[in-house]
C-alpha cells in the first residue's frame, strides 16, 4: 500500500494538486493497480530480451532537405493563451528574488 507521503511525492513530481480525499483514493487505487502489475516481475524474461519502445524498426528520421514553410503567425500562436500581451505569453516569474 502506498503511503500518503508517497502519493504526495508523486503528485508533486507530476505537478498535480490533489485534495485530501483524492490522496486517500489514489493511495488505494494505485496500490491495487501496482499489485496487479507486479505479475510482470514474476514472469520469466531472459536477459537477452530487449525492451520494445517502438514496434517500428525505423529510428532516426531526417528531413531530406530543409525547406522553409509558413508557420504560425504570432497572433495565431497567442490565440489560445490564458494570458498574453501583444507579443508574448504572460506567466509568473520562474525565478524568485533569492535565485
Amino acid at each position: 500500500m502506498l503511503s500518503s507521503e508517497e502519493v504526495e511525492r508523486i503528485a508533486y513530481l507530476a505537478r498535480l494538486s490533489l485534495s485530501e480525499a483524492e490522496k486517500v483514493r489514489y493511495a488505494q487505487q494505485l496500490s491495487a493497480i501496482l499489485d496487479y502489475a507486479a505479475q510482470l516481475s514474476r514472469v520469466e524474461v531472459g536477459d537477452d530480451v530487449p525492451p520494445t519502445s517502438s514496434v517500428l524498426s525505423v529510428h532516426s528520421v531526417m528531413r531530406l532537405e530543409d525547406t522553409i514553410l509558413p508557420g504560425l503567425t504570432r497572433e495565431a500562436a497567442l490565440r489560445n493563451a490564458p494570458l498574453a500581451d501583444e507579443s508574448y505569453f504572460v506567466v509568473q516569474a520562474a525565478l524568485g528574488d533569492d535565485d
Binding site: A37, L40, S41, V45, T52
Partner: peptide
Amino acid sequence: DAYYVRAQKVRTLIK
C-alpha cells in the same frame, strides 16, 4: 527498471 523497462520487455514477448 522494475516497472517501465520490465513492461517493455514483456511487450517484446507479446510481439
